[in-house]
């Protein structure tokens, strides 16, 4: 029983990290049909810059803020320098964002060196809770909490605010949104920066969770995020949460019971969804 609970908590926590990465990816795709292959790089930058701010200030909270800020700034740069010049050309977009991923990853090594960096859980989040005879690691609960909190905030913004409304409308029909007098490029820039900030948040939360950060982590998580975006349905914010939890849990159980297959299962799931149900598993429209 304890094992099952822990595997579940673990899977949920991983799922939340993937969700933070995937939610931005899916909105960016839905709004502008841009698939950002550099998104994982923003995740890694979030981790490195966050850990750096954390060690500089001694405050994990400031580390998180620093990561979010870094993510938003990088998002701004990416959108202006990388996405806009090739807007509308899919092949160029794919090529250029992948190239930028390479640059982001290498830049990390230039700034912080090629070696792994250790990251500690802040004291007030270290340790675990005891529920009867089940031990649950505090930090994992914290990640899950942040994940749901972010989901709640953004779901509220998407459903209840004007900008959220415009984003949802833009996902459905961006020409019409423009014809109604809305500068969709500006909206897209905001969404892109927000998505980048969320990815960076995911990265900084991941750092103490895994204990070490390394430049290639962006790439590894990006693959999971792609899988989630496909399973959840391109452009579906809530779909990406369900899919991220599914992928996180599947990874966690599999890693315990059939370790050889853990990544493979998720990849196969994605291949099957892409081939047989390209609109995603969690979207209503057939």
């Amino acid at each position: 029983m304890e094992l099952l609970i822990n595997l579940t908590i673990n899977g949920l926590a991983t799922g939340m990290l993937i969700f933070l990465l995937a939610s931005g990816l899916t909105l960016i795709f839905g709004l502008m049909s841009v698939l950002n292959f550099a998104h994982g790089g923003l995740f890694a930058w979030g981790a490195y810059s966050g850990v750096w701010f954390y060690s500089l200030t001694g405050s994990f909270f400031l580390g998180i803020l620093g990561a979010i800020l870094t993510g938003a700034i990088l998002g701004f740069i990416t959108e202006k320098l990388i996405i806009t010049p090739v807007y509308g050309n899919h092949v160029q977009q794919i090529l250029i964002t992948l190239g930028f991923m390479l640059v982001l990853t290498e830049m990390l090594k230039v700034v912080w060196g090629p070696n792994q960096i250790a990251a500690k859980v802040p004291p007030y989040l270290a340790g675990s809770y005891e529920f009867g005879d089940v031990l649950i690691i505090k930090y994992r609960l914290f990640i899950i909490f942040v994940g749901f909190l972010i989901f709640g905030i953004f779901q509220y913004m998407l459903q209840k605010t004007k900008i959220g409304l415009v984003v949802r409308a833009g996902v459905m029909n961006k020409e019409m949104v423009q014809a109604l007098g809305i500068n969709i490029k500006r909206v897209f820039l905001y969404v892109f920066m927000t998505g980048a900030a969320l990815a960076a948040l995911g990265g900084v939360l991941f750092a103490p969770y895994s204990g070490v950060i390394y430049a290639e982590m962006g790439f590894e998580f990006a693959i999971l995020a792609f899988i989630v975006v496909v399973i959840g349905g391109m452009g579906s914010f809530s779909g990406s949460l369900s899919a991220a939890i599914l992928v996180g849990l599947a990874g966690s159980y599999m890693a315990y019971y059939v370790p050889a297959l853990s990544l493979a299962v998720n990849m196969m799931l994605m291949a099957i969804v892409l081939i047989f149900r390209p609109q995603g598993l969690f979207t209503a429209k057939g």
């Binding site: 949802r168 409308a169 459905m172 029909n173 014809a179 809305i182 500068n183």
Partner: peptide, 27 residues
């Protein structure tokens, strides 16, 4: 750009109506 044209006072009703399918009439 399209949004500037729209804001200068031109309304557009496209052939396919361009309704946002998942938004309510109010939205």
């Amino acid at each position: 750009p399209t949004y500037v044209i729209a804001n200068s006072g031109i309304g557009y009703v496209p052939e396919d109506q361009g309704i946002f399918a998942d938004l309510t009439v109010e939205e």
